[in-house]
Write a protein that binds this DNA or RNA. Structure first.
Length: 672
DNA sequence: CCTGTCTGCCC
DNA sequence: ATTCTGC
DNA sequence: GCAGAATGGGCAGACAGG
């Protein structure tokens, strides 16, 4: 006992050896739980009222650090419902209290819920995955890591494992209670660690958190560090709640003293709902243009949300959330959706989405689809850009592009798998091994002026008039503005011939053609051949193994291992795992192997050379097999036996054909 | 110094 | 990336 | 149709450990 008490004082505790007292505590049982229930009722009431108001139980004083238990009990309550509005309402209530008492903790509170530590473009990552967590949980519980892994498989949720294996359930722990602030600081310091021993240090930081955690807190700490709350709460809902919070608690009018002590009493539920949705839109727009809570939240504390988009303008050097596209199952579906609006079809290149910024000081920044700063990966683009903007009056610009690997001698497009071998950090021009061509398709800003509200037809014209193509290095995407479905169909085929994945289809004129950052729009459609039935070879594959599912899939299989049949050796060779089968029957053993008998039809986008899978190993490559890219379940082939599955020879044939279309040659990726 | 594992991030 | 599901 | 949560192949880079 002494040891158990002592450990938390010296943080991190040393490796311990003492026997584990079998704690029989039920995580659902403690007294913390009773408090949660009360709070649960409180905010459920608020939810029914439609707004999400203050917490009834406030356990800290104005200006003091927010206790972590506030966040923890909030998540407990969120877990109790699957209704989105109710979730948002619960989070709104929690944020409102924080906003009123300790507004400085709003940003940490939000970051913790999102499992992040900084905006994506700052390049600061937690560096915590399941493995480190398992080690920390093992250390905190006194169990072996193997035991924790075993439990994880069985329970399907590391957070629950952390709670269930907790060593001392003493509510009167000698460690100070966690605060939102201290947890966030711990996360930041974990993220900052590097070098040898860094894994141990991270483990120890987490260990401290777990030791200091009370009741359900270890559940949430674990899930937060995994980056998955698994309660139906993710960024869009957090944003909605944050917006609603500031509807309830706007900044004191003009610049007077403190936040208004009371929510504006005059808002009817309908008005609140309406205002909240307006505020959410404004906040989403601001965060799309300035994806940084440290910037946006302080502005919200000072100014009305109506001014947000103006106060968080599109800024060269700061990434914008890119506009995304929805899949579409064929030209007929596309024409149906767009009616007789004018549209454009652009090649959909198989590369990496890149947002290229040209700054007033002539600096260049490149951002990925997820707003990561990838400038260091593309020194050639940095070098190229002055040539692109040369001569014109381009002082600043933000371009939306797809970067594609090319073979420099011929400027032929290469597969994505080649692009992905590019070095990523601090790459020197002289050491580049993979050449690229930038295919530009949109411009969001020119000379400081946002173009996002302009129709695409204008943006496209501005793009093409102000920037210069450089053969093999910077091109505008191939496109047509089709006048008939037949045009579109034909262009689709041409795109496939030209080594593209398919087409992007976009409105050209009017409001739907404006640039809508983030997921807020399905105005763009993507058309790929593997979306279209009958356009792509499918595979009849044998189910040879399975893994236990996690989370929602606890207790059923989460993924299956599939194989083709090598008729020469009479062996089954794996080609992919599959995660989207409608989980059949299945005993509940973990990670099993099956006798090859069940055959499933699987479709895929592509085949790739695989370091993992054994199909055709040594046949198309000395030390690699072949795998399916984006495999998905089509149906069961009950009439087929295992030996009637697609053969390895057929897989090889399909692979070879694909390579011929793609690059003309089967030039080996692994020379030199 | 080499290899395996983990993590994050592309798709 | 793709897919399924609850709202 | 959105949001959320399951799941895929595969790469570089950073460490751990021999």
């Amino acid at each position: 006992m002494a040891g158990a008490l002592q450990a938390p004082r010296s943080c991190p505790p040393k490796e311990e050896k003492e026997e584990e007292e079998e704690d029989q505590e039920q995580p659902e049982g403690g007294k913390e739980q009773r408090v949660s229930e009360e709070e649960g009722r409180a905010s459920a009431g608020a939810a029914e009222g439609g707004r999400g108001d203050e917490d009834v139980h406030v356990e800290w004083k104005e200006g003091e650090p927010v206790p972590f238990s506030h966040l923890s009990s909030t998540l407990d309550r969120v877990q109790g419902t699957s209704k989105r509005l109710e979730i948002i309402s619960i989070v709104t209530a929690a944020l409102s209290t924080v906003r009123r008492l300790t507004p400085d903790d709003l940003v940490p509170f939000v970051y913790i819920m999102l499992g992040r530590v900084a905006p994506p473009f700052k390049g600061l990552e937690l560096g915590v995955g399941d493995s480190v967590l398992v080690q920390a949980i093992a250390a905190a519980s006194g169990h072996e890591t193997s035991k924790i892994k075993e439990e994880y498989k069985k329970v399907g949720d590391l957070g629950q494992v952390a709670v269930a294996t907790r060593r001392n359930q003493l509510s009167l722990s000698p460690v100070r209670a966690l605060t939102v602030r201290s947890v966030f600081e711990a996360m930041k310091s974990a993220a900052a660690i590097e070098g040898s021993e860094s894994v141990k240090q991270r483990r120890d930081i987490i260990l401290c958190l777990l030791v200091a955690a009370r009741g359900n807190e270890s559940l949430w700490i674990t899930r937060i560090l995994q980056g998955k709350l698994r309660v139906g709460l993710a960024e869009p809902s957090v944003i909605s709640a944050l917006a609603a919070t500031f509807v309830l608690h706007p900044p004191a009018s003009s610049s007077s003293s403190f936040p208004s002590p009371l929510p504006p009493p005059s808002l009817s539920p309908e008005e609140f709902k309406k205002e909240s949705s307006i505020a959410t839109e404004a906040l989403k727009e601001a965060l799309a243009q300035q994806p940084c809570y440290e910037t946006v939240v302080p502005i919200l504390l000072e100014h009305s949300y109506q001014q947000l988009p103006v106060l968080c303008p599109l800024t060269p050097g700061v990434p914008v959330k890119p506009m995304l596209a929805h899949p579409s199952r064929g030209v007929s579906e596309v024409t149906k959706r767009f009616g007789n609006k004018t549209v454009t079809c652009e090649y959909k290149y198989d590369g990496e989405r890149s947002q290229i910024h040209w700054l007033e000081d002539q600096k260049v920044k490149v951002f990925s689809r997820n707003s990561e700063d990838t400038t260091g990966k593309f020194p050639d683009i940095v070098e190229l850009l002055p040539k692109i903007v040369e001569g014109g009056g381009v002082k600043s610009a933000i371009l939306d592009c797809e970067v594609v690997a090319v073979e420099r001698a011929t400027n032929r497009i290469l597969p994505f798998q080649i692009l992905s071998t590019r070095a990523r950090k601090n790459v020197q021009l002289s050491s580049l091994k993979v050449d690229v061509c930038v295919f530009a398709f949109d411009i969001l800003l020119l000379n400081g002026e946002s173009l996002m509200r302009r129709p695409l037809i204008e943006r496209r014209q501005i793009l093409r008039q102000n920037l210069r193509e450089v053969e093999g290095r910077f091109k505008f995407v191939s496109s047509i503005d089709p006048t008939s479905p037949e045009d579109m169909e034909e262009f689709f085929q041409v795109a496939l011939q030209d080594s593209c994945e398919g087409l992007m289809i976009k409105s050209l004129e009017g409001e739907p053609s404006q640039y809508a950052p983030d997921k807020r729009s399905r105005e763009w459609l993507k058309l790929k051949k593997d979306y279209i039935e009958g356009m792509v070879d499918t595979f009849d594959l044998v189910v040879v193994g399975a893994w236990q599912g996690r989370g929602k899939r606890t207790g059923v299989y989460g993924a299956f291992l599939l194989a083709c049949y090598n008729s020469e050796t009479d062996e089954f060779e794996t080609v992919c795992k599959l995660g989207n089968a409608k989980v059949p029957e299945g005993p509940n053993q973990p990670d099993v192997w099956f006798d090859p008998s069940t055959v499933w039809e699987i479709s895929a986008a592509d085949l790739s050379l695989s370091p993992q899978h054994t199909a055709c190993y040594g046949v198309v490559h000395a030390s690699r097999g072949i795998a399916l890219r984006f495999p998905r379940f089509v149906r069961e082939r009950e009439e087929k036996g295992a030996s009637q599955a697609t053969t390895s020879q057929q897989v090889k044939e399909i692979f070879s054909q694909q390579r011929n279309v793609q690059s003309g040659e089967e030039s080996d990726a692994s020379t030199s």
